[in-house]
């Protein structure tokens, strides 16, 4: 496959922008670009004939020997695996395929479970970041200052990331 027939999209993980990215992939499929591979931060699309498709993503809890069975359920209902990475499975199907999640109560429980993990991390990094700001030493050598700023930046960055995930999950929860 020559490089002119592929396209690379940057993405920041499914949990923060799931819906937006899925609709984007559907728009690309209409233009003849199809998702074939995903890495941690990139989605690789390949050129083909334009099609009306729908995309969906799932984060299942599957054991190693359970993957075949899991994928068989999707095949049976017209969903094909586009790619999987880091526990996320992205599927595509024709416009008439039924949704993969039909049990809203269960989906609510799963998202609540994820929130239970992310929320304490957000609070932890909020405290750490505030600590860096409040307890900043009055005098530091230039090297200490660089290390201090770097650590504070990492803590603030992680706070931003976990905070964004929390807000996304809370926003989705409120749809039910």
């Amino acid at each position: 496959m020559s490089s002119s027939e592929t396209k690379k999209l940057i993405h920041w993980g499914w949990i923060t922008g799931e819906e937006r990215m899925l609709r984007e992939l559907e728009r690309y499929a209409k233009e003849g670009w199809f998702l074939r591979k995903c890495t941690m931060y990139h989605l690789i699309l390949e050129k083909g004939n334009p099609k009306e498709l729908q995309y969906t993503v799932d984060l299942p809890k599957i054991e190693k020997d359970g993957e075949d069975e899991y994928l068989q359920y999707f095949k049976e209902t017209g969903w094909e695996l586009a790619c999987n990475n880091n526990g996320y499975y992205v599927f595509y199907a024709g416009k008439d395929a039924s949704p993969i999640h039909t049990d809203k109560e269960l989906l609510h429980q799963l998202r609540k479970g994820r929130l239970k993990v992310i929320m304490p991390l957000t609070i932890l990094f909020l405290i750490v970041t505030i600590g860096f700001v409040v307890f900043s030493p009055m005098s530091m050598s230039s090297m200490q200052e660089i290390i201090y700023t770097l650590l504070a930046g990492i803590s603030g960055g992680l706070l931003g990331l976990f905070g964004m995930i929390c807000v996304t999950l809370l926003r989705i929860q409120n749809h039910f």
Binding site: Y73, E76, T77, I100, H101, T102, L106
Partner: peptide
Amino acid sequence: MGKIRDVSSGGFIVGPASMYT
């Protein structure tokens, strides 16, 4: 998934992700 659709005369659909979990 097919059996449930038949038993419910097409009125109840279970998606693959919901069925697996």
